[in-house]
Design a protein around this nucleic acid. Structure first.
Lengths: 318, 318
DNA sequence: CTGTTAGCGCTTTCAC
DNA sequence: GTGAAAGCGCTAACAG
């Protein structure tokens, strides 16, 4: 018992005994057994995180914010990626629950009904991150992707663009794409009755998807602005325009999303929307920790978005 | 006991009992306790992975290869990032060992002595990935970064470049940078007695680091070729050259590394070195699994590198 | 301050 | 095919 106390660093042991114990432990290269500990105390300091993918800056940034917060609070995070497959998410949640985690984090709102049911019935706090909803499983911290689409639309409309288009990720990838496109569509429909064309290439990385999507759009129509799911795709689009001899913003406008690192070295600043991903991670993690510790927190926390006008869009003369 | 057997799916239970048990388990929403299981069997199906960072394509690709392999073999992977800090790696290894993992994966060869000691004494198989060495802790799968530097050097020399420069990541980041620079230096010294200038900006993301490093070099000298730690930095360099009115490859050559996604949409193909990152992950994971199952494997597996000549370098007239 | 007792949920072993 | 007994390494609760 004194050994247990000494090793855990709780009091109830004299400094003398503690020192002896720690020395012996070191000498015999003692390694504690976390499984036994978790079993005895019936919980763990594990936070399970489900992410769509490790690729790209977006989730890496969110993750970084969360991990910093958890690390300094003494929690370990274990991460899984679903590759945008809700069934993979479900099986991860099952596995996770068997580890008695202190909390669970899911990305987005698109879950199997069984996942939701499982989590609602368990006493474990759950955070949904990246998307915003008023009715989360437990708590959520994210942005409103529909509003983000509207924001881009409003900017484009105000500059006088009237033939908008949107390039999205391959089907079954980012579920946020549809929400943003809808926001964009609603604004254009409402403010100037224009329809938004869309392209969705079937494969490829963000850069090639942006490139191909742009090629498809330019082959079949003549949009005056193309909006993209993210800055990487927008860059692919820029390259496509360049090859076809289209000047940006003279001949066509380009708008990205997320304000990624790449944009910081482009010769023309990119019109985009800034998302506070690091902050989102920190806020989410902090709220989840509060929830774990029984402190009451905001159920649903939307994070601000900021439209960043750049040199790839400009006022159209009418 | 029959319950245990039924749930695990081992035989020794009649189909009838098994069906009953499974039904009841489902009805009462039974969730197994992995901690108790691991405690009882004295091991787990966890693979602990230490990565420098989640940022960037490189480790995401390697990770993807590893995870695929582990998943299909029924192992779960838990990942931590060290942000290039060997002390963070050490504390992760300590934490990991307390979970009785089936295997451990570390990135690179730069570890604290204590980490190495800890791992050498434990019976747990250890894989070092990304770098190559003939004397790993246990087994390793990676590339020889010194040779990679030589490869780039040989290409540059053969094209007639004589004023080489190298842009590296901020200090304390990628430890591979020094090995590559050394390879590059050795080749230039041996083949044409030229020295390699180098720049190493102090902060920033890959893109801005490439940009700033290039600006530093161009301010103080007139290299005829600049080599970069990776394609993203090379792109930053390209943008810097463009702003300064330098044409590539007419005025200056540019060489990247890793053949990243970005390169696939650039108007000029980038001279770079292809690294088989996905394959590396798969090979590493496969070898580790073999090791875990007591099958003997190659201790040290170097993966091939391929120089990919592009339009950002060309033959110099003498 | 120190140590004993009991139990966490599961699996191994061994009877039946 | 089924179940009783014992133990994995640890900690909560209590006794000394």
């Amino acid at each position: 018992m004194s050994v247990s106390r000494a090793i855990r660093g709780v009091d109830g042991v004299s400094e003398k005994t503690r020192a002896q114990i720690l020395k012996i432990a070191r000498d015999m290269k003692y390694v504690p057994n976390s499984n036994a500990r978790s079993l005895a105390v019936a919980n763990s300091n594990l936070i399970g995180i489900s992410l769509p993918t490790f690729a790209g800056e977006v989730f890496a940034d969110i993750l970084k914010g969360m991990r910093r917060t958890f690390d300094s609070a003494g929690y370990s995070s274990v991460i899984d990626t679903t590759e945008y497959n809700p069934d993979a998410e479900l099986s991860w949640v099952r596995r996770l629950l068997s580890w008695q985690p202190a909390g669970i984090i899911l990305t987005g709102l698109d879950h199997r009904p069984e996942t939701v049911e499982l989590l609602r019935e368990s006493p474990i706090p759950v955070l949904e991150i990246w998307d915003h909803t008023e009715t989360p499983i437990d708590i959520c911290v994210g942005i409103d992707h529909y509003k983000a689409g509207q924001m881009i639309g409003a900017h484009a409309v105000s500059l006088g663009y009237r033939r908008p288009a949107f390039v999205s990720a391959p089907r079954g990838h980012d579920t946020r794409a549809d929400a943003r496109l809808e926001g964009l569509r609603d604004i254009f429909a409402r403010d100037c009755g224009a329809a938004v064309l869309s392209a969705r290439p079937e494969t490829g990385n963000s850069f090639t998807t942006g490139f191909e999507g742009t090629a498809q759009l330019l082959d079949s129509a003549s949009p005056d602005i193309i909006c993209y799911l993210n800055d990487h795709m927008a860059f692919g689009g820029l390259m496509c325009c360049q090859i076809r001899g289209l000047s940006v913003p003279e001949d066509i406008g380009i708008a990205g999303f997320n304000q990624l690192d790449l944009a910081s070295v482009l010769p023309k600043t990119l019109t985009t929307v800034r998302t506070l991903r690091r902050l989102m991670g920190i806020t989410g993690a902090t709220n989840l920790l509060a929830r774990i510790n029984g402190v009451s927190v905001e159920t649903s926390k939307p994070l601000p978005l900021e439209l960043v006008p750049g040199e790839t869009t400009r006022l159209q003369r009418s």
